[in-house]
Design a protein around this nucleic acid. Structure first.
Lengths: 250, 250
DNA sequence: CGCCGGTTTGAGTCCATTCAAGAGGAGTGG
DNA sequence: CCACTCCTCTTGAATGGACTCAAACCGGCG
């Protein structure tokens, strides 16, 4: 049984919920007991498409995914990057109509859960419900930070900020080290996530590398000097609302 | 009693929740019975400040407010504009720490409700809870659209889009007409909401006016040609998830 | 081996910014 | 009631950060 806490496909999801609320054994069991189906998704495949009317919420069990919209003249805007444990489209399933696309960034595993099971769980176990609600609020907080990032920071700060955020989130989910991880996004995807063009991302990354803030290998980016990178990206992790020792309020 | 549905300071909030869920009489009563204190706030006053640890959620009863962040080098980014009925900081109160500021845009009335009452209501009356959750999801959807707007549209489209959005939301809340309303934001505020500068907003608004899409009086903007404005702003209201005849699902 | 998606680099352009100064209104206080 | 101030709006000129266009490079893969 304590096995399930690590082997269940829902384990990363549970781990994430427990960032937000201290769930007891019964509540944890209830989360893991959600009826679900796991699917393997190839890199680049769509998980949800704008206009879909999904009946299932989906969670990312492994790999990366991203949300994006296409504007009228065909430009793409990436709204979010997701990693194992993230609820990838509570949004779309509770709102009944997908207003954006979700696409696998790498090969990934996705767990599908019928909407009504999610809702039932949330209201039968208020702390679980509160954790999920909390999660959607944190998502919102991240969107706000992205708005500020794209609207009011220059190219190198935008990229530095994005890299810091992903490192911090990876670490908070126990998926990697904050100071040294790799980011599986093409420069074009980085551009669409920062409101830039691929060409300019290329030049800016080279610049960050020349300054000794990051390292780069083909198609991947790593962090070299975390502190200076945070400074360059005007990064402050408060908006991620991660639990801190001493803030164990309800 | 049917009086309270129009006179209570919480009436606009209830009206908004009922956009998302069809609440019965008991549920409606429960919403209106929330213990609350109403405060009048002068234009420009802060309602919540970044770093606050608010114990109260607040609702906008009348007037306008906006959320914003200040970046490291002092630039302001406006993340959202709110009107009567909007839940203005469930965010900050449920997350325990405000990650951004909320400021009155005009003179406004704000209702403060202790966090625990909000939570209790949400879980005692699941449909009310679902409506609130839904509301936070729609907020998130709007943030995503703003990201796309700022990241991937040019100045005139950004402004056109913002104007369309506010008109549509005003109408959906029964606060005005979609095709002709006034927007109490300075050009500097419009700039901070669209990732532009005040000077360029000025030139762009003049341009939209010259094209016959909007009308302008001192410090206010009105809609002249809604259809063409929507086209210019690449505006499609799907992301607002407003109820439509025929989509009365649960 | 040759294609293909992604990366790199250069040169020229442009949308939006910055800087700067003036005009118009609203509010305040003498 | 006028003088004064402050804030917003307006306009012009110059600058610049990011974009576009275009070509070359690179590594993986069928």
């Amino acid at each position: 049984m304590s096995d399930r806490y690590s082997t269940s496909p829902l384990a990363p999801f549970l781990r994430k919920l427990m960032l937000w609320q201290d769930l007891d054994g019964i509540e944890q069991e209830a989360v893991l007991a959600l009826p679900h189906a796991v699917e393997r998704v190839a890199s680049g495949k769509y998980i949800v498409r704008e206009g879909d009317r999904p009946k299932y919420s989906c969670l990312l069990v492994s790999g990366y995914a991203y949300r994006h919209k296409i504007t009228g003249d065909g430009a793409r805007s990436i709204n979010a990057v997701h990693m194992a444990g993230d609820i990838v489209d509570l949004q779309n399933s509770l709102l009944h109509m997908a207003d954006h696309n979700v696409q696998a960034l790498t090969q990934a595993e996705v767990a599908f859960i019928a909407r009504e099971h999610v809702v039932k769980l949330a209201f039968r176990y208020p702390k679980v419900g509160l954790a999920m609600w909390h999660d959607t609020l944190v998502d919102g907080s991240i969107f706000r930070e992205w708005i500020a990032n794209i609207a009011r920071r220059d190219a190198s700060a935008r990229l530095a900020h994005l890299i810091c955020e992903i490192g911090t989130r990876l670490e908070s989910l126990g998926l990697g080290e904050r100071d040294s991880f790799e980011l599986p996004m093409t420069q074009e995807q980085l551009a669409d996530a920062t409101g830039l063009t691929a060409v300019h991302v290329n030049r800016t990354l080279k610049d960050l590398e020349a300054q000794g803030l990051i390292t780069r290998t083909i198609r991947f980016v790593g962090v070299a000097d975390r502190l200076r990178l945070e400074k360059a990206g005007d990064f402050n992790d408060a908006y991620l609302h991660l639990p801190r020792p001493g803030s164990l309020l309800n």
